[in-house]
Amino acid sequence: MAADATSTQSSDCARVGQCARSHSVVIALSCCALATLWLRAHWPTRAQSLLCVLVASAAIGVSILIQTNPVVGLTGAANYAVLTAFVVSFHTPRLLTAVWSVGAVTLGVLIVHVAADDLALAVCAAGIIVLLNVFVAFACRAMLVLIQPDTHHGDIEQLTGLLHRDAFYQAVATLLASRSRSDDRYLVVVAVNIDSFSLLLGLSGASGGNRARVSVGQALREVVRHNAIVAHVSDHDFLVADTFTTADASPLVERIRGAISVTPQRLTASIGVVCTPLPPLAAEPPDDVLDKLIAIANQAIEQARMAGGNQVRYVLRPTLDEDPDDDEPQPDNGRIA
């Protein structure tokens, strides 16, 4: 009888061990499959990210339940905090509820097993894991609130994360209407045009063009001041507006050129810069002022492109009440970089 019981127990343990190994293999293969979604050249879609969360939630639950020692399983339950941080940062509270529901069921099973030997340990461990997940959720939410830009999501161009044209006009109008610092006396508008963009599209396709736009957008954000206004207004055109104490915008322009030149694609750009005193701008509507300044900057870009590209044309103190064609960059007004 004893031998039969021992044999039966050994057989059960073998089956449990084989089942645990099978689950471990499935979990490992699932993790590898999910990893391929994040190793590609582009981000996963929202549906793919949702799938990753659901699979990861189930994988964590199964992996800690198959542990022979339930205390080890309780330790592994802390992994739900990582999943909590991801869901709070990129998904909705409804998905977080689903993840926490799976975690609660898993934690409940572990508590029952641990409580059979040590009730105090089970209660304390469960409390720590719950508090950890709640703390991570609130911390991530607070971080998102702190770093949330003042710009409304509808004003953001989705590819580059910069303002679109209408939002750029609104931001510049606000800047002109609310200027109160006596040390800022000039408005500078910088128009940036990626050189040979059509050739880039022909060689690398739409994905290559998108990567170039994103790279230039990131480069512009990194070199401008925090209160500068940056926009992506067309396929290969960007705009920057800022106020300066002097009419010399060359330090900003050189930073822009340098940042674009070190992008992964080693891009170059033709740049038109318009610098005009702030006080006279109050006499005209902001949109009309900006239309004229951008037209002058675009004309400067055309001259830089005709000269071979990868150059800068400056226009200082243009006359806004005349046609933009009358404000061509002159040797004494600007310089070629």
Rank of each mutant, 00 (worst) to 15 (best):
D4N: 05
A5R: 14
Q9V: 11
Q9E: 10
S11I: 08
C13S: 13
C13H: 12
A14N: 08
G17P: 02
G17S: 08
Q18K: 02
A20H: 02
S22W: 14
S24Y: 07
V25Q: 05
A28E: 12
T36H: 09
W38S: 10
L50H: 12
L50Q: 07
A59C: 14
A59E: 12
V62H: 02
L65F: 04
T68G: 07
A77C: 13
V82A: 03
L83S: 03
T84G: 10
T84P: 10
V87L: 03
V87C: 01
V88G: 05
S89H: 10
S89D: 02
R94L: 13
L95Y: 08
A98S: 10
V99C: 04
W100A: 05
V102T: 15
G108Y: 07
L119E: 11
L121N: 01
C124H: 11
C124I: 14
I129G: 03
N133H: 13
N133P: 04
R141A: 07
A142V: 06
D150G: 15
G154R: 08
I156L: 05
L163S: 06
D166P: 01
A167C: 06
A167R: 12
F168A: 00
F168K: 03
Y169C: 11
V172R: 04
T174R: 13
L176D: 00
S178C: 12
S178Y: 01
R179F: 01
D184R: 00
D184M: 06
R185L: 15
V188L: 01
V190S: 02
N193D: 15
S198F: 01
L200Q: 08
L201C: 03
L201V: 05
L203Q: 14
G205W: 00
V214L: 03
S215E: 13
V216I: 06
G217M: 04
G217S: 10
A219L: 04
A219M: 06
R221G: 05
E222I: 01
A228S: 11
I229G: 00
A231P: 11
H232P: 04
D235V: 05
T243M: 15
T246C: 03
D248C: 09
S250I: 07
I256Y: 07
I256S: 13
R257Y: 05
S261Y: 03
V262M: 08
V262S: 14
T263L: 06
T263Q: 06
P264T: 14
P264W: 03
S270E: 11
G272S: 09
V274K: 01
L278W: 00
L281K: 04
E284G: 00
E284M: 12
D287R: 14
V289K: 01
D291I: 14
I296F: 00
N298A: 09
N298C: 09
I301V: 15
Q303V: 08
R305G: 08
Y314W: 03
V315K: 04
P318A: 02
P331N: 06
P331T: 10
D332Q: 14
